[in-house]
Design a protein around this nucleic acid. Sequence first.
DNA 1: TGTAACTTGTGAATGAATTCACATAGTCCG
DNA 2: CGGACTATGTGAATTCATTCACAAGTTACA
Lengths: 220, 220
Amino acid sequence: MAEDNGKKKISESTIQRLSLYYRVLSILEIEDVKTISSKELAKHEKLTPAQVRKDLSFFGSFGTRGLGYPVTELKNRIANILGLDREWKVAMVGVGNIGSALVGYKEFQRHGFTISMIFDNDQRKIGSNHKGILVSDIANLKEGLRENNIDIVIIAVPATVAQYIVDDIVEAGVSGILNFAPINLKVPENIILRNENMSMELEHISFSLVNRESITETKE
Amino acid sequence: MAEDNGKKKISESTIQRLSLYYRVLSILEIEDVKTISSKELAKHEKLTPAQVRKDLSFFGSFGTRGLGYPVTELKNRIANILGLDREWKVAMVGVGNIGSALVGYKEFQRHGFTISMIFDNDQRKIGSNHKGILVSDIANLKEGLRENNIDIVIIAVPATVAQYIVDDIVEAGVSGILNFAPINLKVPENIILRNENMSMELEHISFSLVNRESITETKE
DNA sequence: TGTAACTTGTGAATGAATTCACATAGTCCG
DNA sequence: CGGACTATGTGAATTCATTCACAAGTTACA
């Protein structure tokens, strides 16, 4: 009966929040907390209890009235929904500043994302070892991705060349791409492309600071 | 007459999109494009023309009917709205994987964010030079931030210690904080705190891939 | 077993963001 | 200079997301 053939569409924000819930639940599990109410869970991420319940209700009902949600069970279920209960094979293209940092980023590994290939075009880097991974020549990108059955590619190259790279990635049959280059890439409809734009958050802060000032004028 | 004392609230997403517009306009300016229509601008970021016009209309009317928007002028105006027309003094706390990469991230500099201080607790790093910046002892965080009039702090420390760090930052009087630690930090209401969660985007991709599969089943 | 206290799950109500659609104003070119 | 064309700016309509509010299920304990 757990079949949900209705398939109502899940909003972007719900998916993002699932990530947050997962993170909190992982911590709670380690702290040996057995159950948690929507109220508590909401507090952890500054949301409303109703929001939490609504989000979870899209995927079934895991809670027990009067008690709350079983931590481990819910965590596992969310992992399953997000696809974190499997190993994803990830490749990194570009091992400069950012790329290099991400290769060593523990958080990815923890969530099932294993970076197993690195590509770069810098002759000095090619052939070298980066945190235990051999850096391949970007000239072999397409074959490399194919042969190793890579699921997801992270792009961390300069904006100027990112589009060429992404074209190759798509041709290689990879359909999940995370782009760190500050440019909007064009991909076919069936490709899942997400952008990580770190300046954006900083700019959001600067906007807020500027706007706040005009209000906080009274102070001092 | 350009006074907008009405002050209708600007939505989060509008602000995010301003960042995108700014990025596109910067490129167009370099390409020596003089004017651009909402339609063209929308195409660059996969939005609708109406959305672009609505976003911009919150801040006044910069366009010319029949022609479009003057690229340079609009770019400068957005820079002004976002607070990118000034120099922000930024400090980095934690110079591990991520922190180190961000210190060398050109994009920040380009948008007016100058990282001028670095703090860490690792004795081997303290006193050393990181891309031309002296690494200070985190024990001196509060005084350092105050003395140097830091506007924004980027947190790139392990999740376990992030809350202590942020408390110090707040006490030092800094009110803009960008957090890379995968944890929800508590700050007073008047502090602008934004989180950058890189796993989240990857998880979004994995969710989409899993869900897509169930639809693409037909293939092969 | 009964009852008081909780907490879920969910339609309905509200609120927010996006898109529509068009009056208005400017451009462009013969 | 005039008419065809283009594109903005914005209320109104629509779609989407969040919150409300409450019936119904479960616990805890006397």
